[in-house]
Amino acid sequence: MKEPVLEIRHLTMQFGGVVAVNDLNMHIDEGEIVALIGPNGAGKTTAFNCVTSVYEPTNGAVIFRGMPIARNHPSGRMRKFYAGKEIDAFSGHVVHNTPDKITELGIARTFQNIRLFKGMTAFENVLTAMHLRRRSNVFTQMLHLNGQEEAAMRKETDRLLEIVGLTDVKDEMATSLPYGKQRLLEIARALATKPALLLLDEPAAGMNPQETEELSAFIRRIKEQFSLTVLVIEHHMNLVMDISDRIYVIDFGKLIAEGTPEEIQQNPAVIEAYLGGDVD
């Protein structure tokens, strides 16, 4: 069996007495589109933030391509009122990264509440995200001696904007774009960091049904084109059922089900927790 791209082991995130994510186990294989769903406040975004090192998990490990990118165990005061499981499984060395390091390793993300660079045009937004892959230093850049690299990056930016279909608005200010296009721009910006794993946090939020439909085709297309692995958090069931290879369902921080879209649709626990027992 091939090694999964991302593996989450016994991930627990506890804020004070609140266990936001409780003993979450997941794995995402190469080339898969995996969805993480759950009712509001189930801990989806928290799990996301643990993967991208915005938060330091209380317990558990996140492993990206065989390398631990986050690993922690409850210590000090936290140990006393730790409410999760596997308290000693991850004792030993602690791994903690900063979000920029995670991106450098090849995990890019978008945000639930759009976070574009407000003072920049669409083009500059994408171009800025390529900064990470630059090899020229600050002095050569200050004197603009990196013409070739800059030219290549501008060309690449144009290509990315063409792929997401924003070429015609590339010189508009990012914040003046319609909501749906801002979402696409965020994805283009994430792609500019050359990721292997793309994390999408509610990419269809605020989109109309037609846009949502286009989005599923779009996600599949970029997955093929950039040979990505995708983890998506989403509320739109249509989108999730349409694009996912596998689905994980969490409720109150706990994993309650996993499986293919068909299995999840049949799963009574999911129906009860997520759809409130109301099936049509």
């Binding site: 979000p99 390091k101 976070r115 574009l116 660079f117 407000k118 920049m120 800025t128 900064h131 990470l132």
Partner: peptide, 19 residues
């Protein structure tokens, strides 16, 4: 541009790999 990205949104800048 990286500096302006930090000004505009620190969290997004960091997520785009800007230390």
């Amino acid at each position: 541009r990286a500096l302006q990205a930090i000004r505009d949104d620190e969290i997004a800048a960091e997520a785009m790999g800007i230390n």
